[in-house]
């Protein structure tokens, strides 16, 4: 079984984690820019973007893993509009880096007006960077974080509403809305967007619930990740989800679609992403 982890924060993980991922069939990882646990200065962001685009691909390559990243100012640091302006001005130059797939993870944290404003500015940067995608793309790929816990439903609705306001400038097939759960997955998929499910202790989905959602809403336009970061998290939670699915009798070709081919299809809309979907015949 081969995996692409569509959302993992490797800057917070050790080389032992890279080795474990490689040993367990992970061929590529995608790392969205996120919060470091404390608010950074604009200069700190530049260093972070360089770490994502220069250093992490080299670390991953030592284990045969392809490392891709996403650039943005994360929603948790979007309250300070002055800082946001400075950081956003630096984003376009990083979008052209060879391993950067697009803008992300943008979104909302506490659903504030400032967060919403910075979200919209990021989307506009993605539209202005349309040339970063395949020929004819409306905008760069976008990876969206939805808020945690009690803020998730309202925040997801706000995000969908703001995306609708961009009208035909937005292509839902080029946007993945992450951290969906039982109360938001339908909203996201019905609107034509890709959905991401995160297997994370306490605050997000569990392997069993993730398999429930795959069964109920179908494997189309659905990715699963562990979002492993500096918190109590586990990069192998994607693998545990596969084990849960196998326990229920799901077959390998179906699992390969969700855990490898779906991310390959979504990311592959950017020609920089070179891992191709794998075709596998079901057992006779």
């Amino acid at each position: 079984m081969f995996f692409i982890d569509p959302h993992i924060h490797m800057v917070s993980r050790t080389m032992a984690d890279y080795e474990m991922l490689a040993l367990s069939g992970v061929v590529a990882v995608s790392e969205p820019a996120f919060w470091a646990g404390f608010d950074r200065s604009p200069a700190g962001f530049i260093d972070y973007f360089r770490q994502l685009t220069e250093f992490e691909p080299r670390r991953a390559a030592q284990f045969g893993i392809q490392h891709y990243s996403w650039i943005c100012l994360n929603p948790k640091e979007a309250q300070d509009l002055g800082k946001a302006r400075e950081v956003l001005a630096e984003i376009p130059k990083f979008l052209s880096c060879p391993s950067v797939l697009g803008i992300g993870e943008i979104g909302l944290n506490k659903n504030t007006p400032n967060e919403a404003k910075v979200f919209q500015q990021h989307v506009q940067i993605a539209i202005d960077a349309a040339s970063q995608g395949a020929p004819g793309s409306k905008h760069a790929l976008i990876l969206i974080h939805t808020p945690h816990l009690e803020d998730k439903l309202k925040g997801t609705r706000m995000i969908l509403e703001m995306l609708r306001d961009f009208g035909s400038a937005i292509d839902p097939a080029r946007i993945l809305i992450d951290h969906v759960e039982e109360h938001t997955i339908e909203l996201v998929k019905d609107a034509g967007f890709w959905a991401g499910m995160t297997i994370y202790p306490i605050s997000k989905a569990t392997p069993a619930r993730a398999v429930d959602m795959i069964e109920m809403y179908g494997p189309q336009r659905l990715c699963v990740n562990a979002a492993a970061d500096w918190g109590i998290s586990d990069p192998l939670n994607t693998h545990r989800t596969v084990l849960e699915a196998q326990r229920r009798g799901h077959q390998l070709p179906e699992l390969l679609k969700v855990f490898h081919n779906n991310p390959a299809e979504f990311f592959g809309q950017n020609p920089k992403f070179t891992v191709k979907p794998i075709t596998m015949q079901p057992p006779a």
Binding site: P201, I202, S203, T206, A208, R209, D212, E215
Partner: peptide, 20 residues
Amino acid sequence: FLEARARLIELAATLDRIDR
């Protein structure tokens, strides 16, 4: 609280799974 919340959601999902 969060741990209790997570366990309640898990139980709700388990009951839904049985029904499906």
